[in-house]
Each structure stands twice: as C-alpha cells, then as structure tokens.
C-alpha cells in the first residue's frame, strides 16, 4: 500500500520533471501564476513599505535613517537567492540539458543584477550617516561587490557568445562557480572582523528588534520574492516566444493574436 503510494508520488514527480522540459507547457500554465505573484508583490510591498517608512518606530540611536533597511535588507537577501537559483538552473542545464533551465539562467540576470546594485546603493546611503563613510572595504561589502561583478559577467558572457547553446553552457559554469561566493557573503560578518554588523535575523534565534520593526521588514522580504517570481515568469515567457519562434505552436499563437 505505502509502497505503491510512494511509487505513484515518485512517478508524478517524474512526470512533472519531464513536463518542465517543455517550454510550451510552461508558457501555457504560467500566466495565472504571474498575475498571482504580481498582485501579491504589489500588496505586500506597498503594505511593508508604508508601514516601515511611516509607522514603524524610530531607532533609539539612528533615528529615521535606520528605515533604509526596509529597502536594503530585502534587496540584499533576494539578490543572493536569485544567484542560488541561477546556480541550480546551471546544474540542471549542464546535467540534464533542459532548455527551460537555460532560459531561467538568462531571464533571472537583470533582476538579480538590479537588486544587488540597489542593495549596494542603499547600503552606501545608510553607511554615510551611520558609519561616517559611503564605502569601506570590509569583507561583507567587498563580497557583495563581487556578486555584482558576477552578475555583470553573466550578462556580458551571454552577449559575447553568439551560439545559444555554447553561451548557455558557459553561463551555467560561471553561475555554478560563482555560488561559492554566497556563503562567503553570508558568513563574512562572522568569519572576519568587519564594519558591517552581523545578521539581525537568523533561522534559529529571536530577531534582535521588536515586532513593530521586524514585521514590516518580513512583509517586504516576502513581497520582493513575489516580485521576483512575477518578473521571472514574465521574462521567461518572452524568452520562450523568442527562442521557440520557429515552432508550430508559437506561429499558431502569433497568428491567433494578430488575427
């Protein structure tokens, strides 16, 4: 009984995995998901931002400038998650040669790159009043800058190689190798002496701020993940249309829309 149940679970997982290999299937099912994540992102980000910027209490030392974290922390977290997703997509592409994985690898780059740039910029704006400097070369800030350059590299590498398949594999290798930087960013504040403070949130411990401060932050973090999901699906759909433009179903779709 349980064996047949687990067998059917593994079979349906396998079927889902095979379906993921089909860009057409993804294109057809993803529309509602994009709208759902888009609406969620809008609601969460507006709520979290208004709450954080207007209603959360001031910090006892920093006053209002601590509110920059309601933008800084979500963008910094999501920029690393996007990179981990690209590393996973790179692994799937190199081992299983799944077309959709290559599309994820190229569609996620602009969002991750802009989020990294945003985290560095807001960090600088916060650093000037708090630390007394726009920029310092400590382990956290430097490894985050390396992440930005990795995104630049992924973007440039794809443009530099004209053959789609070769470009995809080169990007997959770069994305995979670059994932080594993610634990360095995360633990830089624990491994070395840095100016940047250690994490205020951990999975195990209590947050080092009261709920009136961390709830809006959590809402913004969830919101930015939804925004990423909506953005990724939208970009993926465009990439699918572009790359599959010579297939029957895309031609039929275009005829249908233009008619």
């Amino acid at each position: 009984m349980s064996m047949s149940a687990s067998l059917s679970v593994s079979q349906s997982l396998k079927a889902w995995w095979h379906k993921l290999g089909s860009p057409r299937w993804f294109y057809e099912i993803s529309g509602p998901w994009q709208r759902l994540f888009g609406v969620l992102a809008l609601v969460l980000l507006v709520t979290g931002t208004v709450w954080g910027l207007a209603f959360a209490p001031q910090d006892y030392q920093q006053g209002n400038s601590f509110r920059i974290m309601y933008v800084h922390v979500p963008t910094a977290i999501v920029s690393q998650s996007v990179y981990m997703l690209m590393g996973a997509a790179g692994l799937v592409l190199l081992v299983w040669r799944m077309k959709l994985a290559d599309m994820v690898l190229s569609a996620a780059v602009p969002f991750g790159m802009s989020m990294t740039a945003c985290a560095l910029f807001t960090g600088a704006v916060w650093g000037k009043p708090t630390w007394g400097a726009w920029w310092v070369w400590d382990a956290r800030t430097t490894s985050m800058l390396v992440l930005l350059f990795l995104y630049f590299g992924l973007y440039a590498l794809r443009q530099a190689i004209p053959r789609e398949e070769t470009a995809g594999r080169a990007c997959a290798v770069l994305a995979l190798v670059g994932t080594v930087n993610i634990p360095i960013i995360k633990y830089s504040v624990n491994w070395w002496l840095t100016l940047h403070q250690p994490a205020s949130f951990t999975l195990t411990g209590a947050p080092s701020m009261p709920p009136s401060m961390w709830v809006p932050l959590l809402i913004n973090v969830l919101g930015i993940y939804c925004l990423f999901a909506a953005n990724l699906i939208g970009r993926l759909k465009l990439t699918i249309l572009e790359r599959e433009r010579n297939t029957q179903w895309v031609r039929a779709l275009v005829r249908e829309v233009s008619a």
Partner: peptide, 8 residues
C-alpha cells in the same frame, strides 16, 4: 560601528 540590535 553599529551593532545588529534595533529598538525604539
């Protein structure tokens, strides 16, 4: 150097 604690 700011620490990781924030409070009203």
């Amino acid at each position: 150097k700011h620490d990781e604690n924030y409070m009203p």
